[in-house]
Design a binder for these strands. Structure first.
Lengths: 233, 233
DNA sequence: TCCTTTCTGGTCACTTTGACCATAATCATC
DNA sequence: GATGATTATGGTCAAAGTGACCAGAAAGGA
C-alpha cells in the first residue's frame, strides 16, 4: 500500500500495539515493512484513518483485515504528533492497545507476516526479543514506534493493578483458573508473584462485589486441579 | 476565525480543558462561540493544529495567545475522532488537560472572554455551574465538548491519588501548606477529607523519599500558622 | 509407591487507612 | 487582656490490606 502524501495536508493513522501472553511472556506483534519509508524496518501495524470512520473503527477494520480475530480488547493509548515522525508528510498517529488471548491469536497468525516479540522496557533502551535469536532495538523500528511501544507497555503495567485489563488476556473469561490469571500478571509486570497472596488479593478485590464467581468446574493439568472462575467484565 | 474546510481532507484541532481551583472548587474555562458552527454555544478553547507543529506545541501556542500564562501544566487527555463531531468536516480533536493555579490565571482572565464553570460529573448528565445563576448542560456545549469534559474530570480524579498532578494546582510548589494542598484534593474529588489523615498520607508518600520537604517558613492566616513545604516535581 | 507439581488455605508481622480525640497557635471580638 | 473561633498538628485505636512464609491437598509421572 504505497501512498503519495500531499505536503499541505494533514493525515492520521491508527497504529496497533497487539499484545498477548504466550508461554508466560508478554508478546507484541510486529511486521516487517516491505515498502518505503522505513523499508526493512519492523513496525506496528497501522493504516490511514478514512474520512468516514472514527479512529477506533479504523483500528477494528485493520484488525479484521490482518487477522480476523473476534473479541479483541481495544483501548486508545496515546496520540503521537511529532512533526518529523513520518518522512512522507504530516501524519498523526492515534495508537491503540489491542489485547488478544494467545489461543485466538495463534490461529490467525499462521498465515500472516507477523512475528511475536517480547518487549523489555526496563533497560536503558527498548529491546525486543523474538526468542529465536533476533533482537531489535529502537533503531530497528519504523517511525517513532519505539516510543509508542514503551508508552504502551508502561501504561499496561500501570493499569493492571487497579483495572480489570489483565482479564482481557484470558482465553475464556467465563472459565479460567487463578493460576492462569497469575501467569498474565507475571508476564505483564515481569516479576514473579506469590500465588497465595495473589489469590487472596484478587478474590478480595473482585469476589467481594460478585464480579468474580467460582464455577463448579475445574481444570486438570499437571498438579492439583484448579477451580475455574468466571469474571463479569 | 472562520475557516472553510475541504470535504476531502482531514483536520485536527488541539482543544484545551483549562482547570483551576478557586474558592475551594474545581473550575473549568469556557468561552462562548461567536461564529458558526455552534454559534452561541459554550466551548473549550481550541485551534487547528498547523502542519509544522506538534499537537502539544499547538496547545501551548493557543494558551499563550489566549491568556499569556507561564508555568502551566499540559498533559494530553484523549483524542476524539467521531465522524460527525464537527459539522464543517472531518476534524479530529486532540484534547489536553491544562492546569493553571488560580492566582496566575486570574490576572490573565480579566480581559478575556472566558468564564469559569464548576463541572459536575456525578449526576446523570454533565452540569456546569458558573456560580452566578448560569447552569449549562451538555446540550449547551459545542461539538462533543461535553464528552471531553467528562473524560477530563474523571481522568483527573483517577490520577490525583497516585500521581503528583494535584500539586500542579498550587500557586507555588516551592512554598505551600498542607491545608492548601488538601483544598485542591477536596475540590477535585468533590468530598471533604480528614486533615489529620490527609497530612499523614501525603507525608508518607512524598516526604519519605525526599521529594517533599518542609521549609523553615510558615504561612499565617486565620488560625494556627501552617508550615510551608516544597515539592520536587 | 514415591516424587514432583500445582493449587489452596493458613499464620504472623508489618503497613496502610479511616474515624476519632486532643492540643497548639494564631486571629477576631469584646 | 480575656475569650472564642479557626486552623494546624500530633496522637490513638481498630480494621483492612500486604509481604513473607509454612503446610497440606490433589493430581500426574517415574
Amino acid at each position: 500500500m504505497h501512498r503519495e502524501l500531499r505536503q499541505d495536508e494533514l493525515y492520521a493513522t491508527a497504529d496497533l500495539m497487539i499484545l498477548t501472553v504466550c508461554g508466560g511472556r508478554l508478546k507484541l506483534l510486529l511486521s516487517r515493512r516491505v515498502n518505503p519509508p522505513c523499508e526493512g524496518c519492523w513496525a506496528l501495524p497501522g493504516l490511514f484513518i478514512g474520512l468516514e470512520e472514527s479512529a477506533e473503527a479504523a483500528a477494528w477494520r485493520l484488525l479484521q483485515e490482518m487477522l480476523p480475530v473476534r473479541d479483541a480488547y481495544v483501548e486508545q493509548l496515546y496520540t503521537f504528533t511529532g512533526v518529523g515522525r513520518d518522512p512522507r508528510g504530516r501524519v498523526l498517529s492515534v495508537a491503540y492497545l489491542v489485547i488478544v488471548p494467545w489461543g485466538r491469536l495463534q490461529e490467525a497468525l499462521a498465515g500472516s507476516s507477523f512475528r511475536c516479540f517480547e518487549p523489555d522496557v526496563d533497560g536503558p533502551g527498548l529491546r525486543l526479543d523474538d526468542g529465536e535469536g533476533l533482537v531489535l532495538g529502537a533503531g530497528d523500528l519504523a517511525f517513532d514506534h519505539g516510543r509508542i511501544i514503551e508508552t504502551g507497555v508502561r501504561r499496561l503495567r500501570g493499569k493492571i493493578d487497579y483495572t480489570d485489563i489483565g482479564f482481557r488476556f484470558l482465553e475464556d473469561p467465563q472459565a479460567f483458573s487463578l493460576g492462569e490469571l497469575q501467569t498474565v500478571f507475571e508476564a505483564v509486570l515481569g516479576e514473579a508473584a506469590d500465588s497465595s497472596n495473589f489469590r487472596r488479593t484478587i478474590l478480595n478485590r473482585y469476589a467481594r462485589d460478585g464480579r468474580l464467581e467460582q464455577t463448579d468446574q475445574e481444570k486438570r493439568a499437571r498438579g492439583r486441579p484448579a477451580a475455574l472462575y468466571r469474571i463479569r467484565l
